[in-house]
Every structure is written in C-alpha cells, then in structure tokens.
Design a protein around this nucleic acid. Sequence first.
RNA 1: GGUGGUGUGGCGAAGUGGAAACGCGGUGGUCUGCAAAAUCACUAGGCACGGGUUCGAUUCCCGUCACCACCUCCA
Length: 479
Amino acid sequence: MPLRVYNVLHREKVDFVPIHEGKVNMYVCGPTVYDHSHLGHAKSYISFDVIVRYLRFSGYDVLYVQNLTDVGHLLESGEDRILKKARQASATPMQIVETYARSYFADMDALGVVRPDISPRASAHVPEQIEMIEVLIEKGHAYVAEDAVYFDVTSWREYGKLSNRRLEEQETGSRRLKGSGKRNPEDFALWILAPEEHILQWNSPWGRGYPGWHIECSAMSRKYLGETFDIHGGGIDNIFPHNECEIAQSEAANGVPFANYWLLVGTLTVDGQKMSKSLGNYTTIKDALARYRPEVIRTFIFQSHYTNPIDFSDEALQAAERGWERIVGAVRLTRDKLRDAPDQGENTFADVLSAHRAQFVAAMDDDFNAPMALAALQTLTGEVNKLLNSGEVINKPTLAAIEATYSELGGQVLGIVPQGDAHSIDMKLTDGLIRLLIDVRKQARAEKNFARADQVRDQLKALGVLLEDRADGTTYRLE
RNA sequence: GGUGGUGUGGCGAAGUGGAAACGCGGUGGUCUGCAAAAUCACUAGGCACGGGUUCGAUUCCCGUCACCACCUCCA
C-alpha cells in the first residue's frame, strides 16, 4: 500500500510520490532562538520526528533540513526579537542565539527527537538571501523603497494559494502602511535597512541592513534541497503570512514549483487556547520533562493526529502515562523472560505479531496516523500480556520476535519504547544488586517472614525501584 | 468581515455509506501473604442541531449554532 499524505497545498489526501525514487528532501521551519522552547514546539517537532523516522523506516533516504532563525524575525513593534532579548539580558545577539540554540537542541535530544541532517542559520546565509532578492528585483517582483526592499505581492498572481487568501478580502490595517515605503499593504520586507546603531547588519547592494524573516527559508531550502523539493513542514499557525511568502518568493525567483507536499501541524492548546509566549500560558519543555518522561510526552502527542490541535493538561498527560506504562510493562516482562527462556522451539506468536505490524504500518501509511498505530500497539500488548501470563513456558524465538516488534515499531518509529539491555557498567551493577535483593526477599517470603520481605520492598521503593510479584517470579521496574 | 479547521461516551481521541477503534477513568470478578501489575466482563442504543440524498448517514449535500487558529510576533 502506498504512503498517503494530506497535502495542505491542495487540501486533499494523495499518494506520496517523491521527485527521486527512494529519496525524500524535506524542509521544516525551525524555531526562532530567543527563548527556551515550550510544549507547542515539542508537538511540532515530535510530529515531524515521527514523520522522518517513519519515512526512513519505510526505506526512504531522507535529507531533513530545519533552519534556526537568528535574525530578522521582528516583533509587532518592529523590533528584532533577538535584539530585544539581548538588550534585556545585557548580552550580544549572538550570545543569545547560541544560548537558546543549545537549549533547543538539548530539549529536542531529551525528547528523543532525531536531529535534522542540516540546521542552517539565517545569519550564516546572508549572501544567499541577497542573491535571491537581487533575482526578485531583476524579475520585477521586488522593489527598493527608502526603508526596505519589498516583495510586490501584486506581481505574483498566485500569492495566497496556500492559505486561500485573496488580498482584496483581507482586513488591511492601515497600520501596516504607516511609515513604510510599501506600495501595497500586503507587501513584505525582503531586506530591511538598518539604522546605524542597529547591532545586526550586513552590507548589501541596497545599503547596510538585515534580511526579512521569510526569505531565509527560501534561500536555505534552495541551497540544501534544490529549487523544488518534496516536503515542506511547519506549524499551521505560520501558514500565513510566512509559508505563503516563502512560496511566492521561491516560485517567483526560481520559476519552478517550490515544495510538492505541504504538511502542517495542528496547534497545542491549553484550555482550548493556543500555547504561546505572548499569552503566557506556556510550559517549557524543561519544566515538562521534570514531571514526565519524554516517552510519555511523545505518547501524549501521538494520541491525536498531527494535523489536529491537542489540548494540554496534567490529566491528559497522566492518562497518556498510564497507557504508556501498560505498553512498556509488557516489553519489560518480555525482556525479563528472555533472560532465561529455553532456546528451542519455533516462534508460535508470528501470526499475531505480523497482523498487528500490518495494522501499524497501514495506519502510518495513511498520513502518519499515529493514534491508530498506537492503538495497534495497545491491542498487541493485550495479546502479549495474555501470552506472558498464560503460565506456559515461552521459548526464546517467540520472546525475541515480540521484543523485536516493540523495539522496531515502538522504539525505532515512535520513540516511546526505550532500548533494552543497559550496557553501562553502572546499570549492570544496579541490575545485579536489585536482583540480589529480590533473591533475599524471596528467601524471606519462603520462610513467611513477611516483615523482612516488605522491608526490602519498601526500602527499594523509597529508592525508586518497584517490585512486582508474579506467579513465575518477581520483576522490578524503575520509577 | 475573510480563510482554514473542529464539534464522537465521565475524560482524551481514531474512524467508516450498512451493527462506534484505542487509551484513561469507573463498576464487578480472577490472580495474590499484602502491595503492585496483569487479566476477564460491563461501561456511547448514538457521533453539535435542523433539513436533504439513499434501501440505509455519525460518515455525502445544504443550512444553523458553538468553539479554535490565521488575517498582527509565536511550531
């Protein structure tokens, strides 16, 4: 079955056909690094993480580019947000950029988000942006005003095609014309001339200044992925004006289509309202990670389709946590039994595994339907638990096949099943010591010395080690 | 005002023109020294509301209402 994706550009679900067979070139709008990231960013980048992981799992060679915006992203006041932060922190702009770029990567690493292959920065691609602006001016799609170089939206008939906006139907605030050399209110800045005291500025054919926000994505995607590439991703909240401007600039400059497929992620909300800096209703990723495991945050996000909004609450996270625990509980038990299972025998569970794998793959092939894929893992977990609790001896080939299925689908693709077998010396030692204590407690229980047995269990619990007695022995898990 | 989207059980959330996934929660069993986990059964007679098409609609069409996002900085 072919992979199908919902292409926002045409508002329909279509078969995914890459430009070059077996190869996917993909660009996702990255963050502006002027503050710590919050869970809204997590939803976006975890969603694309799974898209990239699944494409690779499906055999595609993916080149994943995600930019870092470190210049040109202006506040409503017209002030560059990086500069504002730098002034507040009495730091240089590049210190701010470096600080928060590192923070961003640290957060993404902690969430298990696979790093993009290339993370280009806007400030490091000024020549490429200038070059593109020059082409736009030559072709009559941009003009030089006294304060900036603007893209002339009336020169590009298709402007608005992604977001279905018609210029004449928009509420055009007069504010946007105030004090600028724009010909049309919807014209947007490609290059902004900087006053002398402005800290971030470069030489350009039009005078010293800095690039506008939108041009960076056009210039950098072209540089690394070509004039036409396969997938462009981002948050739905940036469909206008940012994504719209990108398309217009790129197609006007290059004369060929920009991205073939547009995949946009729904918003993370809090009490139905978008999580955002300006509303102040945000939870940083660092704060969230202090309360929930990364796998739990991922599971929470996978419980709704990436295109839909999802509402954040502690209740929802806790529900996700319980659901996640059920899955990894089965995995833990499987790995535990694998330690001393008989080698002989055939995989008697192959049919169940392949049926659930097929469900999982069918779900993901249908526009990366993670909620449905997760459901397949959940029903598989029911089957696995039944098998493991049946009281029968299960052979190694069967257990290994179960383990491999979870590691592949739940681990490699979704990133919610941690790797087994901690190989570090510390973990081996810890594991050995815990098992030693389990043996000691077993002895006490055999002697009906329940006080001693409970003491071992209670003290281990205080250390975050939870013991679970089963008919076939005691297992443990770390809190 | 324009554009796009959403409205499904106590909560979260999939999905389909022909008996409503999955998870959480709840109730009652089983297992168990206790605890924890697991497991079994039950838990929406209806999918915002009103029309229409159809043998049949939650699913398609029209209308209405509500909420959200974007049109102004945010993935």
